[in-house]
């Protein structure tokens, strides 16, 4: 059996970083850790510490309040599993300025790489949970899947197309230097974001 193709998380995030334009970017868990290696932006929210699964509704609130502001939420597959209902909430609200990126590596990376319940090894049918199908079933109409970074880079304009958009990126998982980390006191950082949104 061949190994499914996947892209390094850092390379996937570099594409989002390069093409974000003026978007708010909210990152969670492993993506939040890796985002901190990239040039910061006033409209970043490294959502650490987090309430796992609540990144998408946090971004949705911003998107509703500011319809002309693009919001990109980069959520892990474990985070998405924590709050699958958010897909339904997002599709019901249907903000045109919202992009959900699900980075799917099948594991809880920051806690040591334990497989999620969506991993093929834990599913009765032995198949990986299909987050793109979940998004479509919830009501997303703009859904994309990528397992190589060059294809994602080539299609980068989908980050900003009328949404809500869901992009599922199959990523490899790191085994070293994996711990969750925060760039500083959360209450101060979120005020930086708030100020950027009010300016």
């Amino acid at each position: 059996m061949s190994t499914p193709q996947a892209m390094p998380l850092a390379e996937a995030l570099a594409v989002i970083h390069q093409y974000r334009a003026d978007a708010v970017v909210i990152t969670t868990m492993g993506a939040a850790r890796e985002w901190q290696t990239l040039e910061p932006h006033p409209k970043d929210l490294v959502y650490m510490p987090s309430s796992m699964g609540q990144g998408p509704p946090l971004g949705l609130g911003i998107a509703i309040a500011q319809p002309d502001q693009r919001v990109i939420v980069v959520n892990g597959d474990g985070c998405t599993l924590m709050n699958l209902g958010c897909l339904v909430t997002l599709a019901a609200q249907a903000p045109k300025n919202f992009t959900l990126v699900v980075v799917d590596n099948g594991v809880y990376e920051v806690t040591g790489g334990q497989t999620t319940i969506g991993h093929p090894a834990k599913r009765a049918d032995g198949q990986p949970l299909n987050f793109a199908d979940l998004a479509r079933a919830a009501g997303f109409t703009e859904v994309y899947e990528f397992d190589d970074v060059e294809s994602f880079r080539f299609e980068h304009e989908i980050l900003h197309e009328p949404g809500p958009v869901c992009i599922v990126l199959k990523t490899t998982h790191q085994t070293e230097d994996i711990s969750a980390r925060s760039p500083g006191p959360p209450a101060e950082r979120i005020q930086t974001l708030r100020a950027a949104l009010q300016s």
Binding site: G53, G61, I64, G85
Partner: peptide, 26 residues
């Protein structure tokens, strides 16, 4: 007033936070 319904209450606090950050009064 805009009514925003969620699927589970945990979403509500985070969504309200996002609205607040965006300048709304949720």
């Amino acid at each position: 007033i805009e009514l925003v319904q969620v699927c589970r209450e945990g979403e509500a606090w985070a969504l309200a936070a996002g609205l607040y950050l965006g300048g709304a009064k949720p």
